[in-house]
Design a protein around this nucleic acid. Structure first.
Lengths: 324, 324
DNA sequence: AAGCGGTTTGAACATATGTGCAAGGAGTCA
DNA sequence: TGACTCCTTGCACATATGTTCAAACCGCTT
């Protein structure tokens, strides 16, 4: 009595789709769906998981505009930045905090991504966490470009950064433009020379044309320093130099002071991150921050005008507002 | 140790929002959410239900374009209409069928509605079912206009139609323009006269400027006749006249033949539904159909070019395609 | 303050959903 | 063909979620 397949297609994807319809649009129980699909309840449960994980089912939360939290309004007023405050209980550990903010961002990121876009992405603990959860969204002709080099003296960084970017790339079906250089050159001249290479010029050109940039802020002199400060990318002398120059943080390994200035910070001459002016011309600049220890660095980034959209955990957001 | 409310707003709506975030964006269990919100698990369950019912949480299913079902493609090819086939098992009753299609439409309707729109809506069993499930979406300055009068000789129809339209109106926060006339006038001249009234002209003008029309098709001579054919709106003579004229169905009580023509059908001179030309100039014309008995009527509506988007249950869709 | 509808709450129960695991099936290779 | 791996399936159990119901609460009135 079942129907020929010429009219009802019956492969895996289509079952997933049907299950999603029945579950989310018609409120059937998994049990009922199992019967309609001639399979077991467990399988339906798995189909639905897959439907969610693969972005086939898209769950959004639309806060009525009049219900944006007070903190979000405050941040908009003071910094002209759209804040997305992620609720995290105050007693949560920094690891929890990061994980939960990352998960939220991963779920919503699709909103910012579309076909034909160029997306610049940095790397680090935060981007890593986001990448591990990002929900796929099918796009055409999208392009991801790595914002800064990832090699270090122990040369383990390449894989790390690459895995991260790769995850985004497959999630969005975007081409990936890697940046196969060390994070910092030893000699500024090498960088100058290298930047003249055709391949590199193409990449830098791409960065100048980004539609979206995704990054976190690094915070060097806190009790929880960021990946780049402990991963063997910088030696003690270099750290001292940063400290002397009054650096409070970095975005994609470009360092800045509390007031957002970058002039006369020697390490920037050798770094591979995008000039802040390049970042600033990007229409959408999404920054993900979690943990109070990043507040000072975040302030610097805000002062530098690097951010248009800020994802931040609740208590860090509060700390940001309560500050001087 | 809790925080003052000056930064974390704490009323009901905000709890709902937070719960939704924690559940849908951060994958916490309701139990964990209950702890963060200092309430019981049951309450969280209720908060989340409300979040879904109130459209705060928006669940969409995005079929990859290459996975549209064969039937949907077929319908697009043959009728130039975007079909949304609702999976319903073949053995389902007509009531089930209707209910499930209606639920699906109700969930997705928000997609078609936006601020500043004028929405024309018909009434009948199908619209009733949809209205009872429609998920709210906040809009500004939207306007709903009733497509056809609802009074009948027993004069019970007014309330019926009104309830339906009212539900849509509150769900979208739209102003409601009712159509306080009988479904059919006894004398065409009365209609002509009435249509010249200022209030009516405003309403008819609104219909001419609709952005979206939402309706089903009526099917008079099937074993499951539509509301208007059994609700006391038409007497036997009138039904005979329709039959004689070769009528196969109606949209908003405007009758048509199998080829989509309407000329020389006397009842149309006295009816209050919009001329089909008015319907046809509406950019988006959403038709909801369930049950095989509506196939012939649906064919007529398609022939008349009344539909741009068709929501239809699976086996009716198949019947539509298999036809002559 | 006591009394009264109407609403909200959480504990207890009833269902529904997620997952480890062993069995079965499909593909590959010798 | 048989031995092997890898993947999928459904059962049984562990969790998570939905719902009922009596108690607590709230806003009014007397």
């Amino acid at each position: 009595m079942t129907h020929p397949d010429d009219l009802s297609l019956s492969d895996r994807t289509s079952d997933t789709l049907t299950a999603a319809h029945l579950y989310y649009m018609q409120d059937l129980t998994m049990d009922a769906i199992a019967r309609e699909l001639h399979t077991s309840r467990s399988s339906v449960s798995r189909l639905l998981s897959q439907a969610r994980a693969s972005g086939l089912v898209d769950i959004q939360i639309r806060s009525p505009l009049d219900a944006t939290s007070r903190v979000e309004k405050l941040i908009l007023d003071r910094f002209q930045v759209t804040a997305h405050v992620v609720p995290v209980p105050d007693h949560a550990s920094d690891v929890d905090r990061l994980e939960r903010v990352a998960l939220s961002v991963a779920r919503i990121l699709g909103e910012f991504v579309d076909s034909n876009m160029i997306m610049g992405i940095a790397w680090g603990s935060t981007m890593n966490a986001v990448s591990r959860h990002v929900t796929p969204k099918r796009t055409h002709n999208a392009q991801i470009v790595q914002l800064n080099g990832a090699g270090n003296t122990r040369s383990t960084g390449l894989d790390y950064a690459n895995e991260i970017l790769q995850r985004f790339s497959t999630a969005f079906g975007a081409r990936l433009e890697q940046f196969p250089v060390p994070t910092f050159f030893d000699d500024p001249a090498t960088r100058t020379a290298y930047w003249r290479e055709r391949g590199l010029r193409r990449l830098l050109e791409m960065q100048r044309n980004m539609d979206v940039a995704l990054f976190s802020v690094g915070s060097p002199f806190s009790n929880v320093p960021s990946h780049v400060y402990v991963g063997g990318y910088l030696d003690d002398d270099e750290l001292d130099a940063l400290s002397d120059a009054g650096v409070v943080g970095d975005v994609a390994t470009v360092f800045y002071r509390a007031d957002g200035s970058t002039d006369g910070i020697p390490l920037n001459e050798r770094g591979t991150g995008p000039e802040l002016s390049v970042l600033r011309r990007t229409p959408r600049r999404i920054c993900v921050v979690s943990g109070r220890s990043k507040v000072d660095s975040l302030r610097g980034a805000l002062a530098a005008g690097l951010i248009t959209d800020l994802f931040i955990d609740e208590s860090t957001a509060r700390a940001l507002c309560e500050g001087p």
